[in-house]
Amino acid sequence: MAEQVALSRTQVCGILREELFQGDAFHQSDTHIFIIMGASGDLAKKKIYPTIWWLFRDGLLPENTFIVGYARSRLTVADIRKQSEPFFKATPEEKLKLEDFFARNSYVAGQYDDAASYQRLNSHMNALHLGSQANRLFYLALPPTVYEAVTKNIHESCMSQIGWNRIIVEKPFGRDLQSSDRLSNHISSLFREDQIYRIDHYLGKEMVQNLMVLRFANRIFGPIWNRDNIACVILTFKEPFGTEGRGGYFDEFGIIRDVMQNHLLQMLCLVAMEKPASTNSDDVRDEKVKVLKCISEVQANNVVLGQYVGNPDGEGEATKGYLDDPTVPRGSTTATFAAVVLYVENERWDGVPFILRCGKALNERKAEVRLQFHDVAGDIFHQQCKRNELVIRVQPNEAVYTKMMTKKPGMFFNPEESELDLTYGNRYKNVKLPDAYERLILDVFCGSQMHFVRSDELREAWRIFTPLLHQIELEKPKPIPYIYGSRGPTEADELMKRVGFQYEGTYKWVNP
């Protein structure tokens, strides 16, 4: 592979701008107003304001973009700056750019259920340069409990009458099928589907988006991507930290609602779906819905739930269990780990287990898709061969690698495990991989909904998990304890083995 010439960040961002501006969906010269509902909250200060700053800094926003914060707290732009700027990672050389960014910011205080507050917000936006005809993007960085009041008031008082209007809704989209349907029906009564952007930030990850290209742009994968060759698929999300004093919020939802029903299920769809007619948003989402419709409700015998306990040999936070978090209700049975087996009941995947695993306070930070292939028929190497695996590593250190057998150097035919490896950090030294939120917010500006969740996708996802969630809430089974920093409950490994996964433990990928 030829040595790549190092590029400056300015040059890299210039390439990104060229890609972005050559499309006809990006209205570079139009006025846009980006409204952050819930501007005083954690999500706004840690993710949304920093993301908008990065896009502005790199010249990736339309030229005439204004940012308006809205929340109940009586704040000023200076207050917003004070709480969000520490997350910007701005350099001293960017000081003038930073001043320009905050000059485009404003803030309006108001209630979430008060019509007069929204009329005041609308008047404020109209007073901005060309504000009355601007395109408006409303980001709901809010708890779902206020979605209905907020969307109703936005629709009645704050819509642009000339430009387009788009609304970005953060997960969780309800707690179960019934609450999700209620919320979807409410929002759909106010906005068209092409105006609604239900954001799952995992769909903005580079390697998640790469799944489609790997599958449908490489001839070698087509013939082997089926039940005849693939023994099982494992989708993993692991965090090495616990709730760390923020367990009160987590306890309301648990690990299945927080990660599995959305992030992991979306990745499953991209692995299992048929080739779409095109890369058009609805063509892709149509195929994802077909996959979900082929999955039956989760069966309790295919589920393992766990909850982390303190590690007596650990240090600091590792010595504390979930129930030691003062914000967690006493005696909570909320799971911090889950392993679930699903089956896609169609011709391509009949009988292939899709194993979804996620948890907190585990032994490493990792998100990946792992396809394990069947054993080689007619073994001539005296059971020395391990199964081939194709691994798409989402985070950290984005990579695609194939675990395969090669001859060990020497005189004899002794096979050993090795890999074919594409590590993004080595291959793409001159490429700026956008943060997931950067990519998705740019998608909203461009009107691309491919990486957002459609209402029928959402409904099918909740259909699969709601009976299990209701059973857990009714019966309150005690989750299996696992030690902070471990791989999780051993019962999860036993479940995976029972459905056909072979864990060798003899080879570990190392970032080159």
Rank of each mutant, 00 (worst) to 15 (best):
R246W: 02
V12Y: 12
G242K: 02
Q161H: 14
K89I: 08
C232G: 14
R175Q: 11
W225F: 12
V233E: 01
H186P: 04
G110V: 02
Q83S: 15
Y147R: 01
G242R: 08
H186W: 09
S157C: 15
A231C: 09
G14N: 15
M212W: 07
A103L: 12
V146Q: 15
Q11H: 12
E93P: 10
I48G: 05
E148W: 14
W164C: 08
C232P: 07
G163F: 05
R182L: 15
H32N: 11
R9P: 07
L16E: 11
Q195S: 11
Q133L: 10
R17S: 13
A109L: 09
R136C: 12
I234V: 14
Q22Y: 14
T236E: 14
A78V: 10
F88Y: 08
G248W: 01
T243Q: 02
P143H: 00
L130F: 12
R182D: 14
I33T: 11
L7C: 04
G242W: 03
F56H: 06
D228P: 06
G242N: 06
L235Y: 05
I52R: 03
A78C: 12
D251Q: 05
R192Q: 10
E239P: 03
A116S: 11
D176R: 04
R17P: 14
N126M: 14
V233M: 07
Y118I: 09
E93K: 12
F241M: 08
K95V: 09
F253A: 11
Y202I: 02
S123Q: 15
I199S: 03
N226L: 05
G204V: 00
N226C: 09
Q209C: 09
L183Q: 01
A115M: 14
Y249R: 01
Y139D: 05
K82F: 11
R182H: 10
A134V: 09
F241N: 07
K152T: 12
L43I: 05
N122Y: 09
P62T: 08
F21K: 15
R215G: 00
F66E: 10
P50S: 09
A141E: 01
D24I: 11
I256Y: 00
L98H: 01
S184C: 10
N218G: 01
G69Y: 03
N218S: 00
Y197Q: 04
F253P: 02
E239N: 00
W225Y: 06
D251G: 05
N229G: 06
Q119Y: 15
I48M: 06
S157K: 12
G204A: 04
P62M: 07
F101P: 01
L203D: 02
S157H: 13
K152M: 14
I162L: 14
L55D: 05
K238M: 02
L142N: 04
E252L: 10
A217P: 02
Q11A: 15
R192M: 12
T51N: 10
A141F: 00
Y49A: 05
S106D: 08
F216E: 01
D79M: 10
S117F: 10
P50D: 01
A25W: 15
E18N: 15
I196N: 00
E18D: 12
T51Y: 06
Y107F: 14
F56C: 03
I154K: 04
A39L: 06
F102H: 07
R198T: 01
L20Y: 12
E239K: 02
N135D: 08
L142A: 04
L60Q: 08
I224A: 09
R81F: 11
N229Y: 05
A103Q: 15
I15C: 07
E148G: 11
H32R: 11
A39C: 08
A103D: 15
N122V: 12
I35E: 03
T145S: 13
V68E: 06
K205A: 01
G245H: 12
N105A: 07
M207V: 06
W225M: 05
L140E: 00
L235M: 13
A115I: 12
R215A: 02
K82W: 11
I199C: 05
Y49M: 09
Q11Y: 14
L142F: 02
F56G: 02
E206G: 07
L43T: 02
Y202C: 00
C232Y: 05
E18A: 08
I80M: 11
E99R: 12
Y197L: 00
M37D: 01
L128Q: 13
G14C: 13
M125A: 13
P92K: 10
E206C: 08
L211S: 00
R81H: 07
I67N: 00
E206P: 08
D114I: 11
V12R: 14
S132V: 12
V150Y: 04
C232A: 15
F237S: 06
D30Q: 14
R166A: 02
V208Y: 04
L128E: 08
G14T: 12
P143M: 01
D30P: 08
F250C: 01
L7F: 09
F138R: 02
E244Y: 12
G69K: 00
M125T: 14
V108Y: 10
F221H: 08
L96A: 12
A115C: 15
Q119P: 09
V146E: 06
F221C: 09
F191G: 03
T236Q: 08
K45E: 05
C232M: 08
N135A: 10
G242C: 03
E206K: 02
H32Y: 15
L43G: 03
Y139L: 06
R175H: 14
I167R: 02
G38P: 02
D176C: 12
L140K: 03
A6V: 15
L203K: 00
F253G: 02
D176M: 08
G254H: 01
G204E: 02
Q178H: 15
M212I: 09
Y197R: 01
